[in-house]
Write a protein that binds this DNA or RNA. Structure first.
Length: 381
RNA sequence: GCGCAGGUGGCGGAGCGGUCAAUCGCUAUAGACUGUAAAUCUAUCGCCCUGACGGGCUACGGGGGUUCGAAUCCCUCCCUGCGCA
């Protein structure tokens, strides 16, 4: 189980400084939760992920169920042993895959909608089903992206799998609704997500903390209703999922609808948000934890997060650039390697380039969040 | 010297009389990506004008010819590879 202590509340914003204790150690919050979908931070060893300042990881129930299967992980002694990660770890429930392999895939969009596919002004998901999966009241029939076979995942199944995987914190099975969903769709989906939340609570075991997920898309009353309902069920913490609007101010607005209805003394995890420029605002809104693929995913595309913004290490202007990625960064990459070399590795398609940038991006983000924690402590944020 | 095979855009390589500024791949340039179907995807890539649509110009080794029309056919020269002397 977990214990969460709020050490300090900012007087200048909604930010909180906290300490999350788990059987595998503590997490100073606010904190980034780097993504290890397949029980690995892509391109890094677990030791490297830790050395980059990572305090906690999130793996994925759906993907680990497909490969290698939860039984394998259980037989290996649980996910911590399996991947040699002795720090805190959470598993996402598979609820995001209801979206990403469903409407997200159909329409080629992510959960943050910046443009409407096909140039249409509005695309509304009403009552239809996604092409490749079937959403029912009891759960979801997926098509495995690995081999196409049918996979059923509902609240019971997800909880059972997550128990076998053995993370410190597990998430309730939800439906992440698409950003272009109609109100009707979101209402119906929310009802299901809430029923599933009740089932997850019943399936909860004593050794894992369980976070409930607030949905409701960008509808104020639905978000509030969801926050109250999920709060009432008595979870150990909260995830805030689904559509969070198209701008930073939308996200802020939605968080302001939700957070006042959640027990203050429990951790709040914003699901899937965390570009560098998002972090300070969401922390000031009162978010304690957030996971995002950005640092690792962008690294593999050659994008380095640095103090001045982003560097695209595929650009040949770096051919003879003998500077480190970021002159102020203390990571081993910035201490030992220069842009010219990293550029070369990307051009040569050498995997070490991706690995170096992944390490740097994680270190950079973890360090900048540590600075924000310091600012909260010193009453300047 | 003879024989054979070739010479096409930054590179590799299609095309073999009109629909060709030229398939495709690579490279190059720019962009996208927020609970990871992702070491991926998209766009541009002869020159000039245009935001774009579009228009103009120069091009398929050099030169000449046939034809209404040639990267594609003919002649000739140059060059490359292989084989034989």
């Amino acid at each position: 189980m977990i214990e969460f202590k709020i050490l300090k509340k900012s007087k200048k914003s909604g930010a909180r400084l906290g300490l999350l204790k788990t059987a595998h150690g503590e997490v100073e919050t606010p904190s980034l939760v780097p993504v290890a979908t397949q029980a690995v931070v892509k391109t890094l060893t677990s030791e490297e992920a830790a050395r980059a300042g990572t305090q906690i990881l999130i793996a994925n129930t759906f993907h680990l169920h497909l490969k290698p299967g939860e039984k394998v992980i259980k037989l290996a002694g649980g996910i911590h042993k399996f991947m040699n990660w002795q720090k805190p770890l959470m598993t996402d429930s598979g609820g995001f895959q209801v979206f990403s392999l469903g409407f997200g895939r159909d329409l080629g969009v992510g959960k943050i909608l910046k443009y409407f596919p096909g140039g249409k002004k509005e695309i509304v998901v009403k009552h239809q089903q996604p092409k490749f999966l079937k959403i029912t009241d009891r759960g979801v029939w997926f098509r495995s992206p690995v081999d196409g076979r049918k996979i059923f995942l509902g609240p019971k199944e997800s909880m059972k799998i997550q128990k076998q995987i053995g993370a410190d914190i597990v998430f309730a099975f939800d439906e992440c609704t698409p950003p272009m969903a109609s109100r009707d769709y979101v209402e119906k989906s929310l009802e299901r997500t809430h029923q599933w939340a009740e089932i997850c609570i019943k399936e909860k075991n004593s050794s894992q903390a369980l976070f409930g997920i607030v949905q409701g898309s960008n509808f104020k009353d639905l978000r509030q209703q969801s926050a109250k309902f999920i709060n009432f069920l008595g979870f150990d913490g909260f995830g805030i999922g689904g559509d969070l609007g198209t701008s930073k101010s939308d996200t802020k607005k939605i968080l302001n609808w939700v957070l006042p209805h959640l027990d203050e003394d429990k951790p709040r995890h914003l699901l899937g948000i965390g570009h560098p420029e998002d972090i300070e605002p969401i922390i000031k809104n009162g978010i304690d934890l957030f996971d995002c693929i950005a640092p690792t995913h962008y690294a593999r595309r050659g994008i380095a997060f640095v103090d001045s913004g982003r560097l695209n290490m595929n650009q040949s202007k770096f051919l003879n650039d003998k500077k480190s990625l970021d002159s102020k960064c203390g990571c081993f990459v910035c201490q030992n390697y220069k842009r010219n070399y990293i550029f070369h590795l990307f051009k040569a398609k050498e995997i070490t380039g991706m690995s170096l940038l992944t390490f740097h991006n994680l270190f950079f983000m973890n360090a900048s969040i540590a600075k924000i924690r310091q600012k909260i402590k010193m009453n300047i944020a």
